[in-house]
Design a protein around this nucleic acid. Structure first.
Length: 471
RNA sequence: GGCCCCAUCGUCUAGCGGUUAGGACACCAGGUUCUCAUCCUGGCAACCCGGGUUCGAUUCCCGGUGGGGUCACCA
């Protein structure tokens, strides 16, 4: 079945992985079936709208690779795709309902409703507006809220993920379709839009599942068939105690870009929270996900966002790339001291750290000594288990020999090794001590790529300058 | 509180009546090695509880318990 799916966020802040995971599944369904993925901006709450919200959504989706087939910027046959530009449409349907006696003006103030709600709560029973439904409502003049009239009944439906779900009549109530400020509510307009835009599968996060009877009843009142409801399990934060949400500091998705994550790694990670293909495969490319994704294998229970796993996955995806594929992706992450370095030199450096890179913003810490003289801390020798056994004179004696041997080297990796190895016996020391001493002297760090590769890339001049300076 | 959903290692999960309950992340140990990383080997670690059904339940049913979600003129 060809799926037309949509992602319909409201521009109220930065997009985080919880909502993008739902968008990803919708996108995968569309791509897999040869259908379309739509982006629709749900900006009917002016109070919560955030400056730049829509731009952030588009930027985040583009970075992660969820390009929409219809929506803002790209257009499409059922536009506009921004709800604030569709107000006349919603109004038309609202008026249609009024004419049929299926919608009516709400005569109560917010305060009056609040009192009724509290009373019901105090009596430990659900508050139902329809118990207070006015018998003779005022004519709707656009300054009151407009409510839809829904008949209570038991609703049962097939959810593509959750299976058959049944909810009682208390889940149905007369809800507001147009607010007193003239804007329609999400509950009302997303149904109209999904219908008009010919959406076949509605993906929603689990928090909406108890609203589905309302949506189903609204379809019925409008005389439409409901698309297939696909309720996605929640993504929980690292505590596992609550869903990922802006309110509790869920990381904006673009932060992962800025930290140097690969979008395909993040996609791989998000897809496998709540979905697996039943095999033991862990690492998926995007085309593989498109091929293998299936709604039937989406988990019903929520999953925790485990950043350690993301880190591992990102490293694994980085290691899959060739040097030439990786190089352009790390362009913005080099230390500032690398600004004047040549492409060839930077590629050689990148090759040496390729396998240990977990995310790109580690790059300066891993490579800065290739571009500038390292700062040697006073404790650098005492911190090293092997080197702390040497006193300053012994270090000096060793480095003097090293310098002399290096003077004669052509600085190829093989020649460097051929000249350094014999010094171990000559100086009656161990590889760990001799090589460690050179490493610390030249890189300023106890952690670096292989010594001969490092010296080779660094070159004769930088290497000898640093050793002589130490002497 | 009402309603809904859920329940396998710490985490992501496989399992769909009979398995030594499998894999991955994380963690620990060892190997390779000049450090780190990669890689390899090994280890630790789970079926929430109680009733049924059945020759036999992690698996099916019921009830608890626990967790999450939701009850707005927000989406």
């Amino acid at each position: 079945m060809i799926a037309r799916t949509r992602f319909a966020p409201s521009p109220t802040g930065a997009l985080h992985c919880g909502v993008v995971r739902t968008a990803l599944f919708a996108w995968l369904m569309a791509k897999q079936s040869g259908g379309q993925f739509l982006l629709r901006i749900e900006d009917t709450d002016q109070k919560r709208e955030v400056e730049g919200g829509t731009e952030n959504i588009k930027e985040a989706l583009r970075w992660i690779g969820l390009q929409w087939d219809e929506g803002p910027d790209v257009g499409g046959p059922y536009g506009p795709y921004i709800q604030s530009e569709r107000l006349e449409i919603y109004k038309k349907y609202a008026e249609g309902l009024i004419a049929k006696g299926l919608a009516y003006a709400d005569p109560y103030s917010k305060e009056e409703l609040q009192v009724m709600r509290q009373k019901a709560q105090a009596e430990k029973r659900p508050f139902l507006y329809r118990d207070h439904r006015p018998t003779n409502p005022p004519k709707w003049d656009g300054t009151q809220a407009l409510r839809i009239k829904l008949e209570p009944k038991v609703w049962s439906w097939d959810d593509a993920v959750m299976g058959t779900v049944t909810m009682g009549p208390e889940m149905i109530d007369d809800y507001i379709i147009i607010k007193a400020d003239g804007f329609p509510t999400y509950n009302f307009c997303h149904i109209i839009d999904d219908h008009l835009m010919k959406i076949t599968h509605i993906t929603r996060s689990q928090e909406f599942i108890s609203s589905v009877p309302k949506f189903l009843a609204t379809h019925e009142v409008l005389g439409w068939e409901s698309p297939i409801n696909c309720t996605m399990p929640q993504v929980m934060d690292e505590t596992g105690k609550r869903k990922l949400s802006k309110r509790y500091g869920a990381k904006p998705i673009l932060d992962y870009r800025d930290t140097g994550f690969l979008p395909e790694a993040l996609v791989n990670f998000m897809a496998t929270i709540g979905w697996n293909d039943g095999t033991e495969q862990e690492i998926y490319t995007v085309p593989e996900l498109i091929e293998k994704f299936s709604l039937g294998r989406v988990q019903k229970s929520g999953g925790i966002f485990d950043e350690k796993r993301l880190l591992w996955l990102n490293g694994a995806h980085i290691r899959r790339l060739s040097l030439d594929e990786l190089y352009p992706k790390v362009e913005d992450f080099w230390p500032s001291s690398a600004a004047k370095a040549s492409v060839d030199y930077k590629k050689n450096v990148l090759r040496l750290v390729h396998e240990r890179l977990k995310f790109f913003s580690e790059l300066p810490g891993l490579t800065s000594f290739f571009f500038e003289e390292p700062m040697l801390s006073d404790t650098i020798f005492s911190e090293n288990k092997q080197l702390k056994k040497l006193n300053a004179d012994e270090r000096k004696a060793m480095l003097t020999k090293v310098a002399a041997a290096l003077e004669r080297s052509d600085f190829s990796e093989a020649d460097l090794e051929a000249r350094m190895r014999p010094l171990i016996d000559e100086l009656q020391t161990k590889p760990g001590i001799l090589f460690g001493l050179i490493r610390v002297t030249v890189t300023g760090s106890n952690i670096a790529p292989g010594l001969f590769e490092t010296l080779h890339v660094l070159g004769r001049e930088k290497t000898l300058t640093r050793i002589k300076k130490m002497l």
